[in-house]
Design a protein around this nucleic acid. Structure first.
Lengths: 173, 173
DNA sequence: GAGCGCATGTAAAGGGTTACATGATTCT
DNA sequence: AGAATCATGTAACCCTTTACATGCGCTC
């Protein structure tokens, strides 16, 4: 159900096509909420059928840009305020860690080093993004301020995971 | 595919029934990898059909305890070492944050305070678990040492999320 | 006119959740 | 005797991913 509101939320910033939304989802939210194109197109059709969005304009190559309706805006707002937050996490790296005892020490060290490098790279990406925002590179709209908050989460989460990998390497001396 | 290896990993510690595994999954890994009973029973049947596990004993109330086979052990090990790590995250709380600009300031503050409290509670749970392990409450097997590592991840992740909520509250003065 | 990127989808399969069903055993 | 807990599952649904199909428009 979250993709639905993610799309409505992005459309609240202004009209966009499925293709636009797919790329923005990937770029901005891909790390915390993956969304494939087929799912997006299907969901847009459902949202249009329910009147939460409507066609704003049609362009070349069958392009359809959607606009959010008042009903749609009310729906996202309702989700944000009254909706239950789903706190489910699903992190394969952590699941794996419960079974580290099955790995050879050498393989484990190599694995942890790859993991640390990956998480550090992601953390750095979000740090850069946050720094660019703080420099004013993206202007200062309410929307970009919210993305700054999301980027802070990305930075902190990946940094925590990188530090965790490091800590784990250290504790196996 | 991860549930499969999670079950094999737990069975590598010793025989257990579906019911046992469901509770252990919930207790130990529930926060980083949720698993419902129906899925577990279905997967166990599939694993048994493929010869990765076999029935160890049958008990009262149709209870079937499974034992991992050599093939099964090789399968988990293969997954741990040669398997690709899926780094997908899916965190609704962070997704929501991209749309904070759609919320009323009062509602947002209330929301963030609930979130912070929730994350802090989880972080504390993992901190306690880690402390108990470090005191030696769970002995010192390789298995419990790995769980200690997983708990450290839980602690760090939830702490990062709690700090993030706090930071967000602060930055909106 | 060849190739790339834009743009929208369909089909099929996989993975996961929820609700419900069923019965046995133990506890009070 | 009644309630709680143990124990396993089925059915239906929902969500997500992967692979594939199709065609338009722009650029070299």
């Amino acid at each position: 159900m979250s993709l639905r509101y993610g799309l409505l939320g992005l459309l609240a910033e202004g009209p966009a096509s499925g293709y636009d939304l797919a790329r923005r989802f990937e770029a901005v939210l891909g790390a915390v909420w993956p969304a494939q194109q087929p799912k997006i197109y299907a969901e847009l059709n459902r949202l249009a059928a329910e009147g939460l969005i409507e066609i704003d304009s049609e362009g070349p190559r069958r392009r359809k840009a959607y606009r959010i309706t008042d009903e749609g805006l009310a729906a996202v707002r309702g989700w944000l305020t009254s909706g239950e937050v789903d706190h489910t996490l699903r992190i394969q790296s952590v699941l794996r860690s419960a079974f580290f005892w099955l790995m050879e020490p050498d393989e484990l060290r190599a694995h942890l080093e790859r993991e640390r490098a990956h998480f550090a790279r992601e953390a750095e990406w979000y740090r850069q993004y946050a720094a660019a925002k703080d420099r004013g590179d993206f202007g200062d709209s309410p929307q970009t301020r919210s993305l700054r908050v999301a980027a802070e989460a990305g930075h902190r989460l990946y940094q925590a995971l990188a530090d965790w990998a490091d800590w784990t390497l250290d504790t196996r001396e």
